Computed example of a mutant assay.
Amino acid sequence: MKKILFVVALVATLWIKPGFAQNSQTKALLTSYYDIKNALVNSDAGLASSKATKFAEVLNSMDRRLLSQEEMKAFMGFQDKLGFDAKQISETKDLSLQREQFANFSANLFKLARVVKLSEEPVYYDYCPMKKSYWLSDNAAIKNPYFGKQMLTCGTVKETLK
């Protein structure tokens, strides 16, 4: 009887562990994105550049085997695009160029987030009417990365992924 319980516990642990690993790596990816967004909110081009480099590292270290078939297909479809976007942000210290690339970056990450659950927490998809661009946020309070302090609270939440 003890052997059976041990085997059941072992199988359950192995079965649950990949989901936990996926959650921790996708959460790290989303956190890296938020770090870039927050640097742009604060108009810190140097920090945005270094955080974009970190995002690329997290992106390239993800273990796709922990994703379902559908998630893996979506991830593989966006991995190069997200890597390109992050590289473009990391390679410049020009804040306006970083913000331009951030629009594509955000759109690509949101498309991925619709298929791959990136976090257990809600992900807010915010819209800037002046820039006509979107970004992802970890809270409902608007902090606009496209204009920083100039128009910090300009925008609205358009969608919430739960």
Rank of each mutant, 00 (worst) to 15 (best):
K17L: 15
A86E: 02
M62Y: 02
L109M: 13
L112K: 04
G83D: 03
Q88I: 12
M151L: 13
N104W: 10
K87N: 11
F55T: 07
S68M: 11
V157Y: 06
P122K: 14
F20E: 09
S61C: 08
L109A: 01
S43N: 04
R114A: 00
F55Q: 08
L97H: 02
K17N: 06
G155A: 03
M76D: 14
A48N: 05
L82E: 02
T160N: 08
L112H: 02
N38D: 05
A45H: 05
Y34F: 08
W15C: 15
L47E: 12
L67I: 07
M130V: 12
D35S: 09
Q25I: 13
A113T: 02
Y34K: 04
W135Y: 03
L82I: 06
T13K: 10
M130D: 04
K131Y: 02
C154M: 14
S106G: 09
L29V: 15
S106N: 08
C154F: 01
V116H: 00
E100D: 08
M62T: 10
L82C: 08
K37L: 00
A74L: 10
A48K: 09
M151P: 04
L112W: 01
K54C: 04
L97P: 01
Y127G: 03
L118R: 07
A28M: 15
D44E: 03
A107V: 12
F84D: 12
S106F: 11
P129M: 07
T156H: 05
D63W: 09
A56H: 10
N38R: 07
D94C: 02
S137K: 11
D35A: 12
A28T: 13
Q98Y: 02
I4C: 03
G83F: 06
L112F: 00
N42H: 00
K117T: 01
K87F: 05
T26K: 04
T156D: 05
V11C: 13
K131T: 09
V123D: 06
F6K: 09
L59N: 05
K111N: 01
K87R: 13
R99P: 02
E159G: 07
A103V: 10
V7C: 06
D44C: 02
K73S: 14
G46E: 04
L82K: 05
R64M: 12
D35N: 10
T13Q: 07
G19W: 11
R99F: 00
S96I: 13
K3W: 00
